[in-house]
């Protein structure tokens, strides 16, 4: 399979001399769900945010389908971001807008601000949004305000918004951390199936090892800003988990 995203020698320090990421090398192929696991503060979130440059890298290369993401700015960066969908832990919806409007914000990279302001989106975008509302099971909620939804519903809207971009890769930063176990499974299921249906790779930060094992095709374990495990879920042993999270009491 062809490599879609290739990260090489990536480092990041928020403060000089205190690196959060200490040289990450990872390749992502054109399909499959990759779960990145690791304890809090180990740089998972930084890593995923560097891919679409919500965080700027200190050094290293991020090659996305032949495009070097680490150094682009302005219009080129915006055009690259349109191709990368992102799902957030706190959903990050525009609370006071309707579900439909929130979905359409996924097209803001394509529609001029003036047309967006007048809610003049191309008919195919609106049709796509209606389709996605069906997919996420919120067809009757198009006109509801985002702040009236439950956590699970909001995260579905968050996923649909990312899919509105017709992304070539889907990133998810702790998408289940604010949700109950049942909803978490449903959200992971949705991420996985949408990745498969759209033929795009999905990269998910997650701290629930069981969920990662259940849904991931590949698990990347990080600790202290480095990748210490990279392989299929069935190869992830307790020894690896001890290495990733430290200690062992929690494994009993």
């Amino acid at each position: 399979m062809a490599v879609v995203l290739s990260i090489k020698g990536l480092t990041k320090s928020y403060k000089p001399g205190v690196p959060v990421l200490k040289g990450i090398d990872l390749d992502f192929e054109e399909r499959g769900l990759t779960a990145i696991i690791g304890s809090s503060g180990t740089g998972k979130s930084t890593l995923i945010r560097i891919i679409n440059r919500l965080v700027d890298p200190s050094d290293g290369s991020i090659l996305f389908k032949g495009l070097e993401l680490s150094s682009i700015e302005g219009r080129h960066l915006r055009e690259a971001r349109r191709r990368i969908g992102m799902v957030f832990q706190e959903y990050n919806l525009v609370e006071r807008l309707s579900v439909m409007e929130n979905l359409l914000t996924g097209r803001l990279g394509y529609v001029s601000p003036m047309n967006a302001w007048r809610r003049k989106f191309p008919p195919e975008d609106v049709a796509h949004a209606l389709e996605l509302l069906d997919v996420i099971g919120l067809a009757d909620f198009a006109h509801q305000r985002a702040d009236s939804l439950s956590g699970g519903q909001r995260q579905r809207v968050g996923i649909a918004r990312a899919l509105m971009q017709r992304p070539e890769i889907l990133l998810a930063d702790e998408p289940t951390s604010s949700l109950d176990p049942k909803t978490s499974v449903e959200i992971m299921d949705l991420l996985k199936s949408q990745g498969v249906n759209n033929g795009i790779p999905v990269v998910v930060n997650i701290h629930d090892v069981e969920l990662a094992r259940r849904f991931a095709d590949r698990i990347v374990g990080m600790t202290g800003g480095r990748v210490v495990f990279d392989g299929p879920p069935d190869q992830l042993s307790d020894d690896h988990l001890k290495l990733i999270y430290g200690g062992e009491g929690w494994l009993q």
Partner: peptide, 8 residues
């Protein structure tokens, strides 16, 4: 941040 990530 979400709008930014969508390329707005």
């Amino acid at each position: 941040e979400a709008l930014k990530a969508a390329g707005a």
